[in-house]
């Protein structure tokens, strides 16, 4: 996986480069908008991370120019503004995800992973059926079965499982779930997501030998089959 970081804050750039390299990514870095745009348009990256405010060429202008050349590379916007409508402007400019500073590395890694894999298999959303081990989810009939046994889920639990299935094998953070399933962009003071997950876990894992829904400490959750 090849990632480009466009960030003018040297400290953040150095740490981010190191953290992503440690996580197994091949990393290129640029310090301003012009250089960033030049690199992003000349190389096929899997994900581009763009700071919202950049010298020489603003982050949003960079994304717009990149999209104008026809490049569909997933772009994650890092913003030090982070306000309600700034997210909307960022996504409208062609960004694919948006994260406010300061962020946790785990949050950033989970989002980069999701974006990079979306680049691979952008068809996964349109697939009518998803399968993980003996768990099956049918989007047409809204039916979920595990080992052939029907599992009763509420509409929201179905959405939650659907989201996790689409990101199966990846780490999904609480914020990603709140954004992806509920379309809310704030941090609740109460552990609302954890309780929803534990209910879903009751429904799909209880009574089966192998657990599929795992908690990833310090990051979030992951739906995967463990060897």
């Amino acid at each position: 996986m090849h990632v480009l970081i466009v960030e003018d804050d040297a400290t953040a750039r150095v740490h981010l480069t190191k953290a992503l390299t440690d996580a197994g990514y091949r990393v290129d870095a640029a310090g301003d908008g012009i250089e960033g745009l030049h690199r992003a348009s000349s190389t096929a990256f899997d994900v581009v991370i763009v700071d919202r405010m950049l010298p020489k060429l603003d982050g949003l202008a960079l994304i717009q120019s990149l999209r104008a050349t026809g490049r569909k590379t997933p772009v994650l916007i890092l913003s030090a503004l982070g306000e309600v409508d700034d997210r909307i402007t960022g996504l409208r400019a062609g960004g694919d995800d948006y994260l406010t500073k300061p962020y946790h590395l785990a949050e950033l890694l989970a989002r980069i992973d999701a974006l990079a894999r979306r680049g691979d298999a952008s068809t996964s959303e349109s697939v009518a059926k998803s399968r993980l081990a003996d768990l099956e989810l049918d989007r047409m009939t809204r039916r979920v079965t595990r080992g052939g046994r029907k599992i009763e889920l509420t509409a929201r639990e179905f959405q939650l499982l659907d989201y996790l299935m689409q990101h199966s094998g990846q780490v999904v953070t609480r914020t990603m779930l709140l954004e992806g399933v509920w379309d809310y962009h704030f941090d609740p003071q109460t552990n609302v997501i954890d309780v929803h997950i534990s209910r879903l876990r009751q429904a799909i894992d209880k009574g089966f030998d192998k657990a599929l829904l795992h908690t990833v400490r310090g990051a979030g959750y992951s739906l995967r089959e463990e060897e």
Partner: peptide, 22 residues
Amino acid sequence: VLDSAAHDLRTPLNRLQSRAEA
């Protein structure tokens, strides 16, 4: 003013967080 304040506070907080995590 709000945007600059946000930027000028979030940037050092972000560095602090990056350093702590590193």
